[in-house]
């Protein structure tokens, strides 16, 4: 069971402000090792900001981010990656001017062991065969779904233990969404990579996750096991379409 295992990531009373606006107010959450945890909430609830705070893309005003029990609050973004966290950002942010292969090589920027990089590349290509077919293609010419696969593949190239995914289904054909979610589960089960998932499609997110947090205007208003959240009448009404 996930909750009896150690916490891989822990947020304690994290506050993030944009100017005078509080984007996150005392957000505390735990992600246990090996689990899939999802963050739900409407637009502007603070889901993306939570991921950006963990990745040090926005400064944490107060509170702490702990990873494997060590404080990583306000390290530089590139140092966070070296700790074993990877972040697939909102909007995918693939390097459109580089080839698919170069994108993946950049994902392994901090890796030194050439053999391991090569085997990791093979793993990414087995997971997403489409990327192998398009390896020499400029990433900007890929479809939205393929770019999402590339963004996930690039994050996997850093050999993370912890993966954050921001809206992987956004703007993608429904058929591909299914494939991508299957891959996310596969990555979690087979590679033992812990996942923190932000997703608009709450149905899908609760289906594959173990635990969920619900954010509203920068606060956590509810947290529970995913199947309980799925059966919670308030959640059904607000996020699952009745």
């Amino acid at each position: 069971m996930p909750e009896i295992q150690a916490n891989l990531l822990e947020l304690q009373n994290v506050v993030v402000t944009y100017g005078v606006i509080n984007a996150l107010q005392n957000v505390s959450l735990n992600v246990s090792k090996g689990s899939i945890v999802t963050l739900l909430g409407g637009n502007g609830a603070g889901k993306t900001t939570t991921l950006r705070a963990i990745s040090a893309l926005v400064p944490v005003k107060s509170g702490q981010v702990l990873y494997q029990g060590e404080e990583i609050t306000n390290l530089k973004a590139h140092q966070i990656v070296s700790r074993g966290l990877a972040h697939v950002p909102e909007g995918r942010m693939v390097f459109s001017n580089l080839t698919v292969l170069e994108n993946l090589q950049m994902g392994a920027y901090l890796r030194k062991d050439k053999k391991k990089i090569k085997s990791q590349l093979e793993f990414v290509f087995t997971t997403f065969p489409r990327l192998q077919e398009r390896a020499k293609q400029i990433a900007g010419t890929l479809s939205g779904g393929e770019q999402q696969m590339l963004a996930i593949g690039r994050a996997l190239m850093s050999e993370p233990q912890f993966l954050m995914l921001d809206e992987p289904s956004l703007g993608i054909a429904p058929l591909l969404v299914k494939t991508i979610f299957e891959k996310i589960v596969e990555i979690n089960r087979e590679q033992k990579i812990t996942i923190l998932l932000v997703e608009q499609n709450a149905n899908l997110a609760l289906e594959i996750s173990d635990y969920g947090y619900v954010l509203e205007t920068g606060r956590i208003i509810l947290q529970d096991r995913s199947y309980s959240l799925r059966n919670n009448p308030d959640i059904r009404k607000a996020y699952l379409g009745g």
């Binding site: 973004a77 590139h78 070296s82 942010m93 390097f95 170069e102 920027y109 190239m157 850093s158």
Partner: peptide, 21 residues
Amino acid sequence: GTAMRAVSFNPTAASLVGINN
């Protein structure tokens, strides 16, 4: 050199793969 092109395209994404801009 590839990192230069990556930073040039998107510095945020570059820092997320571990590039020190």
